[in-house]
Structures are given as C-alpha cells and as structure tokens.
Deep mutational scan, measured.
Amino acid sequence: EDYYQILGVPRNASQKEIKKAYYQLAKKYHPDTNKDDPKAKEKFSQLAEAYEVLSDEVKRKQYDA
C-alpha cells in the first residue's frame, strides 16, 4: 500500500504536512482510544510505518525511487 495514501498527503508533501497528518491520524486510530475496533491497531501500525519512512529524508528518497 502507498505510504502517501495511508497518511493522506500528496507525494510532494512537506515534512511539516507529513508530521501533521501523522499526528492527526495517530490520535484518531490509537489503540487506546479504539479498544473495541480490532482494525485500529493494524491501521495505527501502518501509519507508524508510513511515517517512519516518509519522515526520514533518506528513507523517503529510497521509497520514492
């Protein structure tokens, strides 16, 4: 799945936009606030993985290549 789609940001998003999108979605899908939703944990880990790659310039360049 596309990391940009997961975070809901365009491919040319700035680091600030990526961070903002991640924090909004992380708050929304955090397992502690969605105890009754088994998919929230999965969504949250996808968000974390996408953010880890896109927030790191080197990893992001490799991902975009």
Rank of each mutant, 00 (worst) to 15 (best):
residue 27 K to F: 11
residue 65 A to D: 11
residue 37 D to K: 03
residue 47 L to Q: 03
residue 38 P to S: 05
residue 32 D to F: 04
residue 28 K to I: 11
residue 53 V to Q: 04
residue 14 S to C: 06
residue 59 K to A: 13
residue 2 D to Y: 06
residue 31 P to E: 12
residue 22 Y to Q: 01
residue 43 K to N: 06
residue 3 Y to S: 01
residue 24 Q to L: 15
residue 2 D to V: 03
residue 53 V to F: 04
residue 39 K to S: 13
residue 38 P to I: 09
residue 46 Q to V: 11
residue 59 K to E: 04
residue 39 K to P: 05
residue 5 Q to K: 15
residue 51 Y to W: 09
residue 47 L to F: 06
residue 45 S to E: 14
residue 32 D to R: 03
residue 12 N to R: 11
residue 26 A to Q: 12
residue 17 E to H: 10
residue 60 R to S: 02
residue 36 D to G: 11
residue 18 I to L: 08
residue 37 D to F: 03
residue 25 L to R: 05
residue 52 E to F: 09
residue 14 S to Y: 04
residue 5 Q to G: 12
residue 65 A to W: 06
residue 64 D to L: 02
residue 37 D to H: 04
residue 19 K to E: 15
residue 42 E to Q: 08
residue 61 K to E: 13
residue 60 R to P: 01
residue 24 Q to S: 12
residue 17 E to F: 06
residue 26 A to E: 07
residue 9 V to A: 02
residue 13 A to W: 01
residue 35 K to A: 15
residue 2 D to N: 11
residue 48 A to D: 05
residue 34 N to T: 08
residue 12 N to V: 09
residue 42 E to W: 11
residue 2 D to C: 07
residue 25 L to G: 06
residue 63 Y to E: 03
residue 7 L to Q: 00
residue 55 S to T: 06
residue 12 N to P: 03
residue 7 L to F: 03
residue 65 A to V: 10
residue 25 L to V: 04
residue 19 K to D: 14
residue 34 N to I: 07
residue 3 Y to E: 00
residue 63 Y to L: 02
residue 17 E to D: 15
residue 38 P to D: 12
residue 10 P to D: 12
residue 48 A to L: 14
residue 11 R to T: 06
residue 7 L to W: 00
residue 28 K to D: 08
residue 46 Q to M: 10
residue 31 P to M: 07
residue 58 V to D: 12
residue 58 V to R: 13
residue 8 G to Y: 04
residue 58 V to H: 12
residue 34 N to A: 11
residue 43 K to H: 09
residue 4 Y to T: 00
residue 46 Q to C: 06
residue 1 E to Q: 14
residue 23 Y to M: 15
residue 48 A to N: 14
residue 60 R to I: 01
residue 41 K to G: 09
residue 8 G to Q: 11
residue 12 N to F: 10
residue 57 E to H: 07
residue 2 D to A: 05
residue 51 Y to T: 01
residue 18 I to A: 00
residue 26 A to T: 08
residue 6 I to A: 06
residue 56 D to P: 01
residue 53 V to C: 08
residue 30 H to Q: 07
residue 31 P to D: 14
residue 43 K to M: 12
residue 30 H to D: 15
residue 52 E to D: 13
residue 21 A to P: 00
residue 1 E to I: 12
residue 38 P to E: 11
residue 60 R to N: 02
residue 21 A to W: 03
